[in-house]
């Protein structure tokens, strides 16, 4: 077998990589903001806000219960029938964001509920409002707890973002597909692309491990490490 790699592929793949990073970064950040709001509503809504709880729950169940690919297709090919047309990039970013928000909402909800109830009690006893207690006491602790599952979601979304090549976004996967088709070098191109993804995952893992260690609360043990 005769494997051929060409330096000439790299600029295109680098462009694709940049777009993958952009899509992943933006959708994860927007998804986190939306996910936190969904989680707060699911944990704390009561009284007149109860309808919001229903909406948030329905949202989370719908977007976790349907494939990302179906969501993307519906947004890109379905919405124009209703008169709403989007560029491939916008549709892709939207689909990724809406999807990850639902998953992140569940991770944030779990983290918020892992904060001991006494923390909220003590904050309220001091005279802090509910929102202040969430802002200064519950969330800072929940955000630390959410780092491990959030790292998982980041890695998953980074790889999952490859599906957007199907609507014509030339991210890493899209570029690879083009090069492979043009040069009949499927095996080699996809090996290189796989290594790109692998390197990204490694990089993200290292960064988040660093963040986790930097934000660790002194004196609290590390689970699983004596």
């Amino acid at each position: 077998m005769n494997l051929v790699f060409r330096w000439a592929w790299l600029p295109r793949l680098a462009q694709g990589l940049a777009l993958t990073l952009e899509l992943t970064g933006l959708s994860m950040a927007l998804g986190a903001a939306f996910g936190i709001v969904l989680a707060l509503v699911r944990v704390y809504a009561k009284g007149p806000l109860m309808p919001l709880y229903g909406l948030a729950s329905a949202y989370v169940h719908f977007f976790r219960g349907t494939p990302l690919l179906v969501q993307l297709m519906a947004l890109y090919y379905g919405l124009p029938t209703l008169g709403v047309a989007m560029s491939p990039f916008t549709a892709s970013l939207l689909a990724l964001t809406l999807n990850t928000a639902a998953y992140q909402a569940e991770y944030f909800r779990g983290a918020i509920q892992s904060v001991k109830s006494g923390q909220m009690l003590a904050a309220r006893a001091l005279g802090l409002t509910r929102l202040q207690a969430i802002r200064y006491v519950v969330l800072p602790q929940a955000l630390r707890l959410v780092i491990p599952p959030w790292s998982n979601e980041l890695v998953y979304m980074m790889k999952g973002s490859a599906v957007v090549y199907l609507v014509g976004v030339l991210e890493l996967m899209g570029q690879a597909k083009n090069i492979a088709a043009r040069e009949f070098r499927n095996f080699e191109v996809y090996i290189v692309v796989a290594l790109f993804y692998l390197a990204l995952v490694f990089l993200f893992t290292v960064i988040l491990r660093f963040v986790e260690n930097r934000t660790r609360i002194p004196g609290l043990g590390v689970p699983g490490r004596p």
Partner: peptide, 8 residues
């Protein structure tokens, strides 16, 4: 509180 509930 009985169990202090300091903000961890």
């Amino acid at each position: 509180f009985q169990d202090f509930n300091l903000f961890t």
